[in-house]
Design a protein around this nucleic acid. Sequence first.
DNA 1: ACTAGTGTACTAGAACGATAGTACACTAGC
DNA 2: GCTAGTGTACTATCGTTCTAGTACACTAGT
Lengths: 129, 129
Amino acid sequence: MFFHIDPHNGLAIYDQIVRQIKFAVAGGLLKSGELIPSVRELARELAINPNTIARAYRQLQDDRVLAAVRGTGLEVATGAGERCRGERLKLIRARLRQVLAEARQSHLEVRELRDIVQQELKQIEREGA
Amino acid sequence: MFFHIDPHNGLAIYDQIVRQIKFAVAGGLLKSGELIPSVRELARELAINPNTIARAYRQLQDDRVLAAVRGTGLEVATGAGERCRGERLKLIRARLRQVLAEARQSHLEVRELRDIVQQELKQIEREGA
DNA sequence: ACTAGTGTACTAGAACGATAGTACACTAGC
DNA sequence: GCTAGTGTACTATCGTTCTAGTACACTAGT
């Protein structure tokens, strides 16, 4: 389990966990029926309070991404893959649109904005596996 | 004064005000020596508590973007234009980098991400005056 | 049966952002 | 001088997020 939590993200910690698990399911790193790390284990690994993890898991159940197996843990729900792949695009697009809207409002010249975006995109491609 | 405050932005309201004033100064909409709207006036216009505006103005003074004229109001400080133009790039780039980092972590294929970015960028150019 | 591990629920408190209301020193305009 | 408008400071309250600690029902493994 490779998570990357940034407390100064603007996003709440439990929300970051929700998103990253959805992304992992969408990307096929987590498959239907597979057990995810327990509340206590993930809390220990990320050095975060178990309640925060539990809250994220609760929401993931509400979103039908995870399903409870009593006394055993939480597994990835059947059909969660498709559901998450659809949502992934929405989530990323929404975040991107926010940032670009702010940039547009900053009276930066469109050409400059385009340059910045291209630079950062290239950077991502260079880093991305 | 055209501000656009989004409470569900992730960014605190006072922070949005700080950024947008810096952007206005950077873009030349506010020039050195010009008086900005009073705390109470802007609070009324944005339907936001005056304390929140005051907090933003206090930070803008700390950042040497605004300067107080006792009993009269706050004016744009001398040399604020250059200072804000430099910072504008940093602020936008930082936000953009956050979003792209999240996108990269979502195991979305780079090609798909590139497509989304291009789409949204075109959308901005279409809207942008 | 016993133990250790699951998720879940609950109360309490800290920190932060935002709101509400009040008070004060100052200045421009009359 | 008086009034209305500045910024500033202060206390109090609320909601959200996160932390802290405890308790409970359940199950796998022995």
